[in-house]
Design a protein around this nucleic acid. Structure first.
Lengths: 154, 154
DNA sequence: GCAAATTATATAAGTAACTTAAATTTGTAG
DNA sequence: CTACAAATTTAAGTTACTTATATAATTTGC
């Protein structure tokens, strides 16, 4: 098999895919709007990541930054936006006043589930065309890539 | 196999990978600099895409925009930057004065090859840990994903 | 028990990579 | 030769980050 050609294909494909993934589709936004959050809501992949992280319970801003591998100010901003839209709430950790715990606003857990579901839908379409083995290889590839690029930063 | 869990993993992984891929590593820039282009050169994935596209011969700005799936102004900007660094040249298509053809500056073909090689290196590392079948499944996954997100935009 | 250092978050300012809309230049067709 | 279309560029705006700095809360050392 010609690995070199595969590498070139990937080099061409990855940035294009990145641009597509980053661009929230208007359809998606529309759907979300009809489901209870403001019409002008822009839900980016980063926001989805936060919503997914919170399905495992409240998280501090710092924990979110670590999970998403972004700087603390970036995490603050993601939380800011979600809070603006009434999706999440902040409160201080009673055991450590420096820590800000982020959690769903009451009743928004369900809305979040649907927003995530909507995003998941795209992926589901793509992955339904893969066999189980292929799907596993795909994820493995993503992880290897992330590790490799992460390591390159030291 | 639990597809749902795979989907969630992917939803968490993709944006993080995107951020890593987008961030040009300083090492890489240093290496490139030592090879003949200015020290402050920032080579983004988009620029790499242009350099790869040009290995197939000169391209018009419009063709580049199409290949990378970006708007024409975005293609102009990518070419601007590469031209600033003396990597590529513009000249008008003799058969149609509206068209701007982009090509390597004389002698820069070789430098471009090395810049691409450097980027390819990361990928090679990751993909060397995959079997042939896995590598093919990985690329297939990327393509399916790109198609699916592309289709969602109409 | 208090000053100094550390930690968690937020604010401010700046950058890169896009986007859409409008302007410019060149070509084409009645 | 006039009007429209096409290719590119310019202009202006947006988003998602970054680093550096500020603020507030906790911990540490004496």
């Amino acid at each position: 098999m010609d690995r070199d050609q595969l590498l070139d294909e990937t080099l061409m494909l990855l940035p294009t895919l990145m641009r597509l993934v980053e661009r929230p589709s208007p359809v998606e936004i529309g759907k979300i709007a009809r489901r209870g959050i403001p019409e002008d809501a822009q839900v980016s992949p980063g926001h989805i990541q936060v919503l997914i992280a919170l399905t495992g319970g409240p998280r501090s801003v710092g924990q979110l930054a670590e999970e998403l591998e972004v700087s603390p100010p970036a995490a603050t901003q993601l939380v800011d936006k979600l809070a603006e839209h009434g999706m999440v709430d902040r409160h201080h950790d009673p055991s450590d006043g420096r820590v800000v715990l982020v959690d769903y606003v009451d009743g928004m857990h369900e809305v979040a589930r649907r927003i995530i579901e909507d995003r998941r839908h795209h992926l589901h379409d793509a992955m339904s065309k893969m066999s189980d083995k292929e799907a596993l290889a795909f994820i493995k590839g993503l992880k290897l890539l992330a590790e490799s690029f992460s390591a390159a930063e030291e």
